[in-house]
């Protein structure tokens, strides 16, 4: 499976707008999601939960770059718009884009992406939640239960919810401001791998309770 990153001379502001006409010029890729398996979760409590998670079954992914920054446009159907929490539930909806970090590049193949990396496979994710504002979190992980978040990854995110559908755009410089241990650089032209995750907050999805694209997807960046 492949997601192509088209080169389009779009301004960052334009590309970051989920409803912008520029996204009409980029073909969408349908990515099927599956409930994340719980058997490798670090918490026995989570492992014992009845499998009711993974309510979002597919997303539509678009990607472009403008020579400086890389943008992902994710859209999916979700009848419940769960934003800033005022109570223990619902949880906020969320979405993430994950790429291997350079140290992992040789270790990663077209295998599972569901484990959030491993000891020798560090990964970098961009995490959006409606209550984060316009800044997505930069996440690094080496397997379940190891994720670390920071707000200074230079990842922008904007979202729109309309007619029962979320559209979220992530944007970050191809050459990130954080070092290669924390942030995955992307070269144009070039190839890397990508995976996606979506959480349906109304279904109490959070942490390992999510829908994921189970295999790594090739991300082909145009020159």
């Amino acid at each position: 499976m492949k997601v192509k990153v088209a080169k389009i001379a779009a301004k960052a502001d334009e590309a970051l707008s989920p409803a912008s006409a520029v996204w009409g010029r980029v073909p969408g890729t349908r990515v099927v999601l599956e409930p994340s398996p719980l058997e490798n979760q670090p918490s026995a409590y989570v492992r014992a939960l009845p499998p009711r998670h993974g309510k979002i079954h597919e997303i539509e992914v678009r990607a472009l770059h403008n020579g400086e920054s890389l943008f992902f446009h994710l859209a999916w159907t979700d009848p419940n718009q769960d934003t800033t929490p005022t109570d223990a539930h619902p949880f906020p909806d969320a979405a993430a884009v994950m790429m291997p970090l350079p140290e992992a590049a040789e270790m990663v193949f077209e295998g599972d992406a569901i484990s959030m990396g491993a000891d020798n496979i560090p990964v970098n994710a961009w995490l959006w939640r409606p209550d984060f504002g316009e800044q997505a979190k930069n996440v690094t992980a080496r397997g379940f239960g190891t994720s670390k978040r920071s707000a200074d990854g230079g990842i922008s995110a904007r979202s729109e919810y309309a007619r029962g559908r979320w559209a979220v755009v992530f944007g970050r410089a191809l050459k990130p401001q954080l070092g290669p241990e924390e942030s995955a650089p992307v070269t144009a032209p070039g190839k890397t791998l990508v995976a996606f995750a979506v959480w349906e907050g109304a279904n109490n999805e959070r942490a390992g309770l999510k829908a994921v694209s189970p295999k790594w997807i090739t991300l082909e960046v145009a020159s």
């Binding site: 918490s43 409590y45 989570v46 005022t86 109570d87 978040r149 959070r206 942490a207």
Partner: peptide, 20 residues
């Protein structure tokens, strides 16, 4: 803490609160 709230579910005495 990332606010996942599994602790709140797991505590049988329900003595953990979520700070929104």
């Amino acid at each position: 803490c990332n606010g996942y709230r599994f602790c709140m579910e797991a505590c049988p005495y329900k003595r953990i609160y979520f700070n929104p």
